[in-house]
């Protein structure tokens, strides 16, 4: 009887559909990145009164209240599904190609301007270029923990926007040999964190130069991340 009970128990442990380890089940991880703009004073006051915990879900819920009362706005939400141990990247935006090298205007070595002829005119020209991804870029390398609930994230989240162009040399006049270079505004966090499935972590925060609305004079950008372990149905 004792042997029968033990055998039944062990057989059931082996056969029933219990959640297994990541390697066995190849579960998907749904990684959610949120970029939220809030009032800097709201966040500073909150931070002064509270300890930051590994689980930032209470803060995220507080931020949601700020959003509901117009004191915050969700700027970006980025979701990506990925298997544990695989690197993934999601990009949403423009690929802006801009010159990084220029050739100056050229003149002929010998020039005869008699007879009211006009001098040939060349302009400055870009000769080499680079590409910059504007918009939202989210790169993450998640590893599901052995307990099937904790997730290690190696990630880079960034929001890039071209805000202006600067003319060089700086001059009040439009010079024929001047060139323009773009200015990219970047909000980026590069870090590694561990979180529990379904719970938020505040990756970081930073001040923004301009608010999404004119009324928000002192905007603060909060970068939240959450990872949900999605076990496939059997």
């Amino acid at each position: 009887m004792r042997r029968f009970a033990a055998s039944s128990l062990f057989a059931l442990v082996a056969s029933c559909s219990l959640p297994a380890t990541a390697d066995e089940e190849k579960v998907n991880l749904q990684v959610v990145s949120e970029t939220i703009e809030v009032e800097a004073s709201d966040f500073s006051d909150w931070l002064f009164e509270h300890r930051m915990e590994g689980d930032a879900t209470p803060l995220r819920e507080e931020v949601q209240k700020w959003i509901a009362t117009g004191r915050g706005v969700v700027l970006e939400t980025c979701v990506v599904s990925v298997k544990s141990g695989s690197r993934t990247k999601t990009e949403s935006g423009d690929e802006t190609i801009y010159p990084t090298e220029f050739d100056p205007p050229e003149l002929p070595n010998a020039l005869d301007l008699s007879g009211k002829s006009e001098a040939p005119n060349t302009v400055v020209g870009g000769t080499a270029f680079e590409t910059r991804n504007e918009g939202v870029n989210f790169e993450v390398d998640p590893v599901l923990g052995v307990d099937g609930a904790t997730v290690d994230l190696y990630l880079v989240t960034e929001v890039v926007k071209q805000t202006s162009r600067i003319r060089w040399p700086v001059s009040k006049e439009q010079l024929p040999s001047s060139v323009e270079m773009p200015v990219f505004r970047t909000q980026r966090v590069t870090t590694q964190v561990t979180l529990m499935s379904g719970r938020y972590v505040l990756l970081g925060s930073s001040r923004a130069k301009e608010g999404s609305t004119p009324e928000r004079k002192e905007p603060m950008i909060l970068h939240f991340v959450r990872a949900d372990v999605a076990v496939p149905a059997k």
Partner: peptide
């Protein structure tokens, strides 16, 4: 006046970085 509040979550022994910047290209 609180000029800046910058935060980042990190692990012990691993480098982290947070940037809120304008990438300004000059000759």
């Amino acid at each position: 006046t609180i000029l800046e509040t910058t935060t980042v979550m990190a692990r012990s022994g691993q480098r982290s970085k947070v940037e809120s910047i304008d990438e300004y290209i000059y000759p």
